[in-house]
């Protein structure tokens, strides 16, 4: 079994997919990091121009905001939940002032999270698809499946070894994404910012943002959480890709099908957000990070646990189907 997995890993590495993916990542991350740096500088310049040549002084602005918040917190009429979230923001800002950190400067730890938030719906799943789409189908199109199946190994073991190899490579891919986005953005921003505190744990109650359950954690922990979610999503995407790869015996149509469903799913989400069934589609649930950031949700009644359940169901189902199909498939080449 181990040698089978080893064999599959060798195949993936020999295809030089990883190099292609790393190149893509390098290009996109550099572009995005440069763009963010550029717009940050532009903003500072704009601010200085507007305020009539006064140098941008974040300390006084932050202190002012802090005063505002403290005044609000001291007001006995505000509800308890509001005060809790105000207090948390005060804690956050106090940290920034005490440690002499400008809260709006782009840092590497902010960038790597943003990269995931933006990429988790399309870009990163596509990278996984590139990695996984021809895993089985290329065996058919290259006619190597014959050689593979003539060995005295049950078919399910062959598919299982492919799946394990895929999971290993996906795990490494997620790690590479994290390392590359952190390192490259550090080159641009010159700041790590891993110990900065961040507020997380928002949830929506009856369509309103509820800050009741928010907690304050460091950026490093937050990055870890976000990348763990990304890892889970990537494995789900990999499993679904495996199914398509088994069913379709042509790598390019496998990639095509997955791209179409990823992009089409986005449309569904936007145009049919009223439709109950949309929330059971896997693309709708891919963006797990938004549950941590507390950003706007398109469809009501979705929570992190719900999405994880739906995604796991999709992954399990596609694995089961791909094993059944692969076991019964006629090999006519």
């Amino acid at each position: 079994m181990i040698s089978l997995v080893q064999n599959e890993i060798t195949k993936i590495l020999l295809k030089k997919k990883m190099i292609l993916i790393v190149l893509l990542l390098l290009i996109f991350i550099s572009l995005l990091a440069y763009g963010q740096k550029y717009s940050y500088d532009q903003n500072i310049q704009k601010f200085e121009a507007e305020s009539g040549g006064v140098e941008y002084d974040w300390r006084s602005l932050t202190a002012q905001r802090l005063d505002d918040l403290e005044e609000r917190s001291a007001n006995e009429f505000i509800p308890k939940e509001v005060r809790a979230s105000v207090d948390r923001e005060i804690q956050q800002l106090t940290y920034f002032i005490e440690n002499d950190i400008n809260p709006i400067t782009p840092t590497a730890s902010k960038f790597n999270v943003q990269f995931v938030e933006q990429g988790i719906l399309l870009f990163i799943p596509l990278l996984v698809v590139i990695l996984a789409a021809d895993l089985v189908s290329s065996e058919f199109s290259n006619k190597t499946i014959k050689i593979l199946l003539t060995r005295a190994v049950p078919r399910r073991k062959i598919l299982l070894s492919k799946f394990i190899a895929l999971i290993m490579m996906t795990t490494i891919l997620v790690f590479i994404i994290g390392v590359l986005s952190t390192l490259i953005s550090y080159l641009f921003f010159q700041q790590w910012g891993f110990s900065e505190p961040i507020v997380t744990g928002f949830n929506l109650v009856n369509g309103e943002l509820n800050a009741n359950s928010t907690i304050l954690i460091s950026r490093f922990q937050y990055t870890l959480l976000i990348y763990s979610l990304l890892w889970f999503v990537s494995i789900v995407v990999a499993s679904i890709t495996l199914l398509i790869s088994v069913v379709v015996d042509n790598s390019s149509s496998a990639i095509g099908i997955l791209m179409a469903s990823l992009i089409g799913g986005q449309f569904l989400q936007f145009f049919l957000s009223e439709w109950e069934l949309v929330k059971y589609f896997f693309v709708t649930n891919l963006d797990l990070t938004r549950y941590l950031t507390g950003s706007y949700q398109l469809i009501e009644g979705m929570s992190l646990n719900f999405s994880i359940l739906i995604l796991s169901a999709w992954a399990l189902l596609s694995l089961i189907i791909s094993f059944i199909v692969f076991n019964r498939k006629d090999v006519l080449v």
Binding site: I172, V174, N210, S213, Y227, S228, L229, W231, S303
Partner: peptide, 24 residues
Amino acid sequence: VLSIIFIGGFATSVNVSKSEEENE
């Protein structure tokens, strides 16, 4: 190693959301 780390992180984020769920 990475898988173990990610599973740990994943469990934590589910936990974070669980406390939310109770509130909810």
